[in-house]
Amino acid sequence: MRKAPLLEAMGLTRRYAMRRGFLGRPVEVRAVDGVSLTLERGRTLGLVGESGCGKSTTGRLVLGLEMPDAGSVAFEGQPMPAPGTPPWRAMRARMQMVFQDPLGALDRRMAIGAQIAEPLEIHGIGARRAERMERVAALLRDVGLRPDQAVRYPHELSGGQRQRAVLARALATDPALLVCDEPISALDVSIQAQVMNLLVELQSRLGTAILFVSHDLRAVRQVSHRVAVMYLGRIVEEGEPDAVLHDPAHPYAQALVSAIPHPGRGQRRILLQGDPPNPADRPSGCAFHPRCPVAVAICAKEDPMLKPRPGDGRRVACHVAQGEVPAPSVGRSAAGLNRPAQISKAA
C-alpha cells in the first residue's frame, strides 16, 4: 500500500467579502480558488507568484490557521481536525510557520531563549526545566547561534540572527512540516544566502518538509524540489524547478522567469502589460488572458485546467501550452502586447 504523502491539499478555496467604498455592496474575492498540492516528507515545494496571488493564504490554509470554504487538507493521511480541539493542537505541534518579518514575529520584551522554550512548555515537551533549557541550547546551535545568546532580546540581534531565532522556535517541537512565508524577503542579500543555506542544511539533517512561499524564483530554485507558480488564486504551472525556470510552459511563468534581473543576461524581457487584476474582478475564462501575449479567443471563454501536458507531462493550465489551440503567429502576439494596460481598481 502506498504511504500517504505528508501533506495533501485538495481543491482549497478561500473567499473573503470585500466592501468597495464606505457604503458599497460587499463583493466576493476568491483569494485561493481550487488549489491542490502534495508535499512528501523531507521535500520542499516552492510556491511562487506576485502579491495577491494567494500564496500566503494557501500557506495559512495548509496549516489550519484559516479554514477553507471548500476543499480539504490531509496531514499524514489524516484529515485536519476542527480548530481549537486537542487533536488539532497536537497536530499543530507537527507543523510550524516562519514569517517574513522576524522582528514582528518575536516578542520584543522576552529574551529569545524564553521564546524558544515556550512551544516546549505549551506542548509539554521536556519534563524538567533543565531538560528544556538543554533543548533550547541545542536548537540555538542547530540554527547557528550560540547558547549564550539565549538571554539576548530581539533588538540586540541582527536581522539574520533574529530569523535564526524564529527558525529555532519553529523547530522546537520537531515539526514534520515548516511553512516559510517569504522567510528571506526582509533580509539583506548576504544574509539571505545564510538563511537559505541553513534551511537546506536543516532539512537534510532533520528531514523536515518545507512549503517555501516566495516571490523570488531564484530563491525558490535554490531550496525547492518542486515549484508551483500561482496567478490569481490558482496554480498555473507546476514542475521541477529547473524545468520551470529554463523552459516555462505557461505564458505567465515565461514572463515571470524573464523578469528575473540577472547580471550578464542578454536575452530580452517579456514585458507584461498592466498590473495583476483585482481578484474581485476576475477576468472570464483564463484569468491571465487580458495580459497574455499569446491569448486566443477561447482563452476569454473557457477556464483552462491544470493537467499534464502531452509530451513531457509538465502540469500547466493553459490552452495554448497544452496544444489545444494553435499558438498565434508572432504578428498577432505583437499586436496583443500593444493593447492598453488594464488599471487595477483595487482600493
Binding site: S51, L217, A255, S258, I260, P261, L271, L272, P276
Partner: peptide, 9 residues
C-alpha cells in the same frame, strides 16, 4: 512585483 519592476526599469 517582479513583472511590474521589469516595466519600470
Amino acid at each position: 512585483d517582479v513583472t511590474i519592476q521589469a516595466q519600470i526599469l
